[in-house]
Amino acid sequence: MSDDEILAKLTEIIRDQLDEDDIVLNMSTLASSVEGWDSLAHVRVMIGVEEAFGIRFQTSEITSLKNVGELVALVRTKL
């Protein structure tokens, strides 16, 4: 899976998890800049990403994420 494909799938997942169909993400998007992506939604997003890709994150991996690009890179290492 290329980074673009991962980003596209992540965008779908995050739209689903925030129930908001017009969210657009790029590699430098910060969670805080997306409406509705608060700390509670973040739990849902991370669990939804694990559920959709069939992967599990480690504690340290989740706590160190800075932006969407880093999440894409992290997912890539798990596939």
Binding site: I13, D16, Q17, D19, I47, G48, E51
Partner: peptide
């Protein structure tokens, strides 16, 4: 339902 489907339902 998965989490996203349940959320849509709730909304």
């Amino acid at each position: 339902l998965n989490s996203a489907q349940a959320l849509s339902f709730t909304n």
